[in-house]
């Protein structure tokens, strides 16, 4: 018996599922991810402040880590966040909001090394995302190098894909 799945997706969104996303959507998702990373850094900084306040309230002063350390911290947090997101569920929070998913050349979730390298490339060379608008396959530089894709996928879970009806 032929297996058919009832799509919970809106009818107008179905034709776009599993197609590579364009620049605007990916930029919005990246912006949301940037906000998440900023919030994480802010949370860590706040937690450190509270900790220092508790340890030595008299000599307490807001710590200043300098620009380089801050950038390095943001870089690390961003790489770890994106690696875990793409490896574990195929998407970061920005991807969840915008309905995007990262898949490898077989259409599956990236493996841990692939997710890590992609996160590293994306964080080190963020301008590479602009290649999406030039590429005929809507691929960024990291996608082109690692043969990955960022696709529209509004399904909440990474389930076997069926052609949109």
């Amino acid at each position: 018996m032929r297996e058919r799945e009832v799509s919970p997706l809106p009818r107008e969104a179905r034709p776009y599922q599993r197609r590579r996303a364009g620049l605007v959507t990916r930029m919005v998702a990246a912006g949301i991810d940037g906000l998440v990373v900023g919030l994480v850094l802010l949370g860590c900084y706040g937690a450190l402040v509270v900790l220092l306040l508790l340890i030595d309230p008299r000599n307490f002063s807001f710590p200043d880590f300098g620009l380089l350390f801050s950038i390095a911290s943001a870089f690390v947090v961003l790489v770890v966040y994106q690696t875990l997101g793409w490896w574990l569920v195929g998407r970061t929070y920005g991807g969840v909001v915008m309905g995007l998913r990262v898949v490898d050349h077989r259409g599956r979730r990236p493996r841990l090394p692939g997710a890590f390298v992609r996160a590293l490339l994306s964080a080190a060379f963020p301008i590479g995302i602009l290649w999406v608008v030039v590429s005929r396959q809507n691929r960024s530089v990291a996608d082109a190098l690692l043969r990955t894709s960022v696709v529209y996928d509004w399904q909440p879970e990474d389930r076997p894909h069926h052609a949109p009806r």
């Binding site: 969104a13 776009y16 599993r18 197609r19 590579r20 996303a21 364009g22 620049l23 605007v24 959507t25 919005v28 915008m98 898949v103 050349h105 077989r106 259409g107 608008v133 030039v134 005929r136 396959q137 809507n138 894709s149 696709v151 529209y152 894909h161």
Partner: peptide, 28 residues
């Protein structure tokens, strides 16, 4: 977002004098 993606892609393709649609279907 999808509509903006399509519009931007069309605009760039027109700017680059490209013909035909983009191949955006990802592997399944």
């Amino acid at each position: 977002g999808i509509a903006a993606d399509e519009a931007l892609s069309r605009a760039v393709d027109r700017l680059l004098l490209r013909r035909g649609d983009r191949t955006t279907q990802a592997p399944e």
